[in-house]
Nucleic acid binder design. Structure first.
Lengths: 129, 129
DNA sequence: CTGAATCCAAGAAGATACTG
DNA sequence: CAGTATCTTCTTGGATTCAG
């Protein structure tokens, strides 16, 4: 069992894990949680564009898989915090790397994107003739 | 310009880049291309579960953003290869890291998932009382 | 062989309103 | 404040067909 794990294999269970991780929201949430426990509302504010539904849903997934822990303070009004587990902290380092890569490289990409958009169709170029 | 780039901001252009990168198919394809130029059919075989449409579509996106280059050999039958650019190679290192993280950690995650599934509802647990 | 184009189903994601 | 439920919208992805 667990021998030749390979996310490229459709039936390898590791593919399921990749499916969860390869998500915009997961990456951004993990990055936000690196600073320490964060409240739900604060997460909503930090992760721009996420809906409350997606936030809750993603946090449930992360909780189920052991990336985050939910801390419910028995107060009124209710206060809930989320914090990384050891596993989550490990993955968050990768998330941070991705975020930083994007920050460091997006200007080049955007420029390439503009150039390609302005250029003529691909069919007339890049042939080995 | 390009000062406080932050993918957390919905309107920051870097978010667009994150949107593309945070994709299962992108990660797997970049990993496959690390070995060198690969033909389309070979990619289809290696990346389990990808449809021809998604493969082509993803390759177009990667090409547009400067991650891969399309090499069309003027032969019959036609032969097309894709290879990483320098930018793509840079990102593929990260993709590889993610893949390896998944391979190394998925057994723990799967076990946690099973335990959580078997456990009672969350509402009755993990309160600070 | 490659891949573009179409149609269609399934699921993700957004908006809103409501409960504790 | 935190979370759920519902409804709607729309992107994703699969199957098929056709062209170079």
């Amino acid at each position: 069992m667990f021998l030749p794990a390979n996310p490229c294999n459709l039936n390898c269970p590791s593919r399921d894990v990749l499916d969860l991780i390869a998500s915009k929201w997961v990456i951004l949430i993990l990055c936000c949680l690196q600073q320490g426990p964060v409240r739900t509302g604060e997460l909503m504010r930090q992760v721009g564009g996420i809906s409350q539904k997606m936030l809750t849903q993603t946090l449930r997934d992360l909780e189920r898989d052991g990336f985050v822990e939910r801390i419910s303070h028995p107060e009124v009004p209710p206060r809930v915090e989320y914090q990384l587990t050891d596993l989550g902290r490990s993955l968050s380092e990768l998330a941070r790397s991705v975020e930083q890569w994007v920050v460091g490289n997006y200007p080049v990409i955007l420029e390439k994107r503009r150039k390609t958009a302005a250029a003529p169709g691909r069919s007339s170029a890049r042939h080995l003739d």
